[in-house]
Design a protein around this nucleic acid. Structure first.
Length: 705
RNA sequence: CGCGAGAUAGAGCAGCGGUAGCUCGUCGGGCUCAUAACCCGAAGGUCACAGGUUCGAUCCCUGUUCUCGCUACCA
């Protein structure tokens, strides 16, 4: 089908914390790239999102901090909204589910289903906290696990033994919120009969979406459908949320997963009076960008709701990403193991596109991926800076040096195959990127952009205009070769701006400024043209598009991550301390000492094979300031170990000394020499090094434990 | 437990029946216009493991192991 309109949504972030880079990589960044691409094509597109501001965790948080739920969501809504705006996530509207339009829309939706007799009413008994006057979600009931006797098992699961539980199974259940004894109270809720929609869903998904949706998304849906759907309660006992709009429903609100996706509709309503065109016309392409944890809600529940209501379009695709881990560990907000976007923006001002680049290049499109600061540095320095940034810079610098600061002419009489191939490459790249983006393959699309710059670097290298320039004095007609090379490199730079624009919008803007062209040049249809910059048009002096990430910055970020983790795990999380009070304590650490590393088990430690060894030979490694090549006698063998201690010790002084060596460390090549192990050194505050070794001679090869 | 997704060079990913590819890193060389950059070349993989189907399997089938998810309002 030919779509006239596009409606793109990104998962509503939950307003009880800031956004981290996992959120960005998971859905906001891909959604933004997709939307920017569609806009550049002048297609009709609306991009909606907003804060999800209801639900129990927000009320809990408010209770703990002694403020109202509204205070909580106001605070985080502002932080989240600003982070997105600063990162260039270009929503047409960023709304929130606590506002009036949303309440009205969600209530009307519920009412329509209610009037149509869709819901089933059911009464059940649930645990109630009499002191806090609230029903308790399973998660907020604590008790002793019937399986492993852990006294702090949750009502839904025991984290110690992993058993799945229900609150009834807990021994001595108690409230997580107060010391009040639990009572059971009857409560009535309205259930959405998902089971009745199962046949329809099966047809819609199994037959219609099998090859269109990503394998993880399709597989997940199929799994749900095959195991059979159950009616699901769409209301909750709470005073924070959208009130259930029917008689006799006092103290009840809509289940957040009922209300949140309707937030997409409410946001569109706020955005435009034409909202119904986007939601109700068959030729609208609705796309939900989400993370994998949301698949069931967007592929099963929400479509069923829309179907039950009638009159709405259904999602054409739900390109869910997997998760992004940080430095090898799962993101955890409670342990504060995350890279927060607002903090990144403070630490790396003006470098939004660098993060956009890294997160897109390493996006968890097909499986969970790991974000490491080292990878952030490598990708930035070796790909963005060296390939893309450097090409643009050298094209500009050469143009100023060899062509008088103006766009040189293209002399068709001396064009060769390399020139023509480069021109063809621009169109090829444009087509490839279109293919990638239309199919939600953003990582590949971005690669194509960088690859074009890579090819352009090679083209320039082959043409060597700086060499040709030396011959111009003797053979003036050679200037034509230089002109052609730089003409094409500059036109290619203009194309790079267009092609990179969806991914790196701030960079594209900067390039437009340097080329002195208006934003309209960035329209997608201009890609592939080689007349974007007029001949003899003077261009500005180049500015560096990106800067390198320094080792110290990487180290600082890694340390920050670990410090935050320590702060969160330190048992000061008393109910009396609010997070605001804790925050300033961060800097109070003793600065001379490295923070202690995370706790390990004895098993972790026993994996390390420490041995006593004697240095039998030592020599400097050529072309390395710090490295010494050591031959160590371990009793049962002699091996080579490289150590970065050349600044501290002379080779001849340490021969014969005993050391402790990590014997089972994976071998690593440095300067072409394989190092098989590591010797232990103690470091003093002044940077001085001391061998960590037996105080009296011991047997070589002896285990250290 | 069951179900789903994933497991391919040091890292990140393609390939999905016919001699294993790309980017980065590593190593060697070249060049110098450019952010010590760029260009050329090389090394590096028993394609998680074990069976099976096939003339032939990384790719299909079966089983196993590991990771993540499906449960909790963390994308």
């Amino acid at each position: 089908m030919e779509f006239k309109r596009h409606l793109v949504t990104a998962a509503l972030p939950y307003a009880n914390g800031p956004v981290h880079i996992g959120h960005l990589a998971g859905c906001y960044l891909p959604a933004d790239i997709y939307v920017r691409y569609l806009r550049a094509q002048k297609r009709d597109v609306k991009f909606v999102c907003g804060s999800d501001e209801h639900g129990v965790p927000i009320t809990i948080r408010a209770m703990k901090e002694g403020i109202t739920p509204q205070d909580v969501v106001d605070k985080y809504n502002a932080i989240i909204r600003d982070s997105f705006a600063d990162m260039g996530i270009s929503f047409d509207i960023y709304s929130r589910t606590s506002n009036k339009t949303h309440h009205e829309t969600a209530q009307a939706f519920f009412r329509k289903l209610y009037d149509n007799g869709v819901f089933e009413e059911r009464e059940s008994e649930q645990y109630y906290d009499a002191e806090k006057n609230t029903f308790l979600a399973d998660r907020y009931i604590i008790g002793t696990c019937p399986v492993c006797s852990n006294e702090n098992a949750y009502g839904d699961q025991c984290e110690k033994c992993g058993s799945t539980l229900s609150p009834e199974q807990l021994i001595n259940p108690r409230s997580a919120l107060s010391s009040a004894p639990l009572v059971k109270k009857k409560t009535k809720h309205w259930y959405f009969p998902l089971d009745k929609y199962e046949p329809w869903l099966k047809e819609w998904i199994s037959e219609g979406k099998k090859d269109q949706w990503k394998p993880n998304v399709y597989g997940q849906c199929k799994s749900w459908l095959d195991s059979g759907l159950q009616p699901r309660a769409m209301t909750r006992d709470s005073n924070w949320g959208v009130p259930v709009p029917i008689e006799g429903a006092d103290g009840k609100v809509l289940y957040v997963w009922f209300d949140a996706p309707i937030g997409y509709i409410s946001a569109t309503k706020e955005l435009t009076t034409q909202w119904a065109d986007y939601w109700c016309q068959e030729d609208t392409k609705l796309v939900h960008f989400i993370g994998k944890d949301n698949i069931v809600f967007h592929c099963i529940i929400f479509p069923s709701m829309l179907k039950a209501h009638g009159g709405f379009v259904l999602p054409d695709n739900v390109p869910a990403n997997e998760f992004l881990n940080i430095e090898g560990q799962k993101v955890s907000t409670s342990r504060n193991w995350a890279v927060w976007v607002d903090e990144y923006l403070k630490d790396f001002p003006g470098q939004q596109d660098v993060l956009r680049y890294v997160l897109c290049a390493n996006a968890p499109e097909s499986k969970d991926n790991d974000f490491t600061w080292k990878d952030f540095q490598d990708r930035t320095n070796n790909e963005l800076v060296s390939v893309f940034g450097n090409f643009v810079n050298r094209a500009f610098v050469l143009m100023h040096k060899l062509c008088g600061g103006r766009v040189p002419a293209l002399h068709t009489d001396v064009m060769d195959d390399a020139d023509r191939a480069l021109i063809a490459e621009i169109s090829n790249t444009k087509n490839s990127i279109e293919q990638c983006l239309e199919n939600y393959r953003f990582r590949d699309g971005l690669f194509e952009v960088i690859d074009l710059a890579r090819k352009a670097n090679k083209y320039m290298q082959d043409k060597e205009p700086w060499i040709v320039a030396k011959a111009v004095a003797a053979e003036p007609e050679k200037q034509k070769l230089i002109d052609n090379c730089l003409h094409l490199c500059l036109q290619l730079t203009a194309n790079l701006a267009i092609l990179a624009n969806p991914f790196l919008p701030h960079t594209a803007q900067k390039m437009c400024y340097m080329m002195k062209v208006v934003d309209r040049m960035l329209e997608w249809e201009n890609a592939g043209r080689t007349d974007l910059l007029k001949v003899s048009y003077p261009l500005r002096a180049p500015e560096l598009l990106f800067r390198k990430v320094e080792d110290a910055e990487v180290a600082a970020q890694v340390e920050k991550l670990h410090n935050n983790l320590k702060k969160a795990t330190t048992p000061v999380m008393d109910n009396n301390t609010t997070p605001q009070q804790e925050a300033p304590a961060t800097e109070a650490e003793n600065p001379q000492y490295q923070p202690q590393k995370p706790e390990i088990t004895i098993d972790d430690f026993m994996k390390i094979d420490l041995r006593v060894a004697t240095i039998v030979k030592a020599q400097k490694v050529e072309k390395a300031d710090k490295l010494l090549q050591l031959e160590l006698d371990l009793g049962y063998e002699t091996r080579t170990v490289l150590s970065g201690i050349a600044m501290h010790f002379k080779p001849e002084d340490i021969v014969g000394k005993q050391v402790t060596v990590v014997a089972n460390l994976a071998p690593r090549k440095m300067r072409g020499i394989e190092s098989k192990g590591m010797i232990l050194m103690a470091q003093n505050a002044d940077g001085g090094l001391v061998f960590a070794a037996p105080v009296v001679p011991a047997d070589n090869g002896g285990e250290v434990r």
